[in-house]
Design a protein around this nucleic acid. Structure first.
Lengths: 139, 139
DNA sequence: ATTATTAATGCAAACTATTTGCGTTTGCAT
DNA sequence: ATGCAAACGCAAATAGTTTGCATTAATAAT
């Protein structure tokens, strides 16, 4: 089973809760917030405490199994599985619909910037927002 | 006095507190968080309640006098004066130093994306992070 | 397989940033 | 000068997240 290997390779213990969290993230294709993960696990009869979800995600983010995702219009932290291939999202300010933008427009730019500024740039966060076709009228 | 005109033009009442907030934002060249604004006003003998700062900034952001700025590594909301010319920041994860990046690498990109996706894109939030030259060793 | 060690978890409480309701004050049009 | 709506202060509420500590479970060593 490969989910277990991912954890083991990173030196994290294999627990039902962590496997559950990773399965949730694997099933949905969009970034999920902490409470939603807990609820989805509860729905599948896996009891888990909120702080456990927080801690597990933080630990797994630290070793690169999952990614934190921020949206400027939302104070919550979201997580997604770190599938290879970095990308960003487009989100609708009204209905919250998300669209994955494939390919990152900033890869080369960030490299140039690192050279120019002498910064060691480790990443960036981009989120583009507006109104989806359906919500454009009813603003 | 032009600060007053800015408020008046947007239909907001001219108050000492709002003028004070705008002066603080005008003096510093980087985005400031709400508590820091309150403290800076207090230092200048302007007593102001935190919730007033929150409300004033929200109101002024709504009419475009100031901009909200988010950094993915910080849960607080920051504000900056809306000087014309949109830009982004580079920030150091260790010492929190900020560098303004002039020119936005996404202007054309966002427009293309809007056409492709039929979204009405109203803006984006970009923040690039890493370690400044001084902090690179002592990670 | 059993045991010892250490990480993971649950629970309650703390914390940080922000928002809200409401009574009072102030700016500004008349 | 007066009246009305907007702005403000204060206290309490809320949302999201973090922490301390006792208990439980996973893994390594025996």
């Amino acid at each position: 089973m490969e989910i277990k290997d991912v954890l083991k390779n990173k030196g994290l213990k294999i627990t039902k809760k962590r496997i559950g969290i990773l399965k949730v993230l694997d099933m949905v294709e969009y970034p999920v917030d902490v409470l939603e993960i807990k609820d989805k696990l509860n729905d599948n009869d896996i009891e888990i405490n909120l702080s456990t979800v927080y801690r597990a995600l933080e630990d797994m983010a630290e070793v690169g199994i999952v990614n934190r995702v921020n949206f400027s219009s939302d104070t919550r932290v979201f997580y997604e599985l770190n599938r290879n291939g970095h990308h960003h999202y487009l989100h609708c300010l009204k209905c919250k619909a998300l669209v994955i933008i494939d390919g990152c427009p900033l890869d080369d730019y960030q490299e140039d910037l690192a050279k120019k500024t002498k910064y060691d740039l480790t990443g960036h966060n981009l989120d583009i927002y507006g109104y989806c076709p359906k919500c454009q009228d009813k603003k």
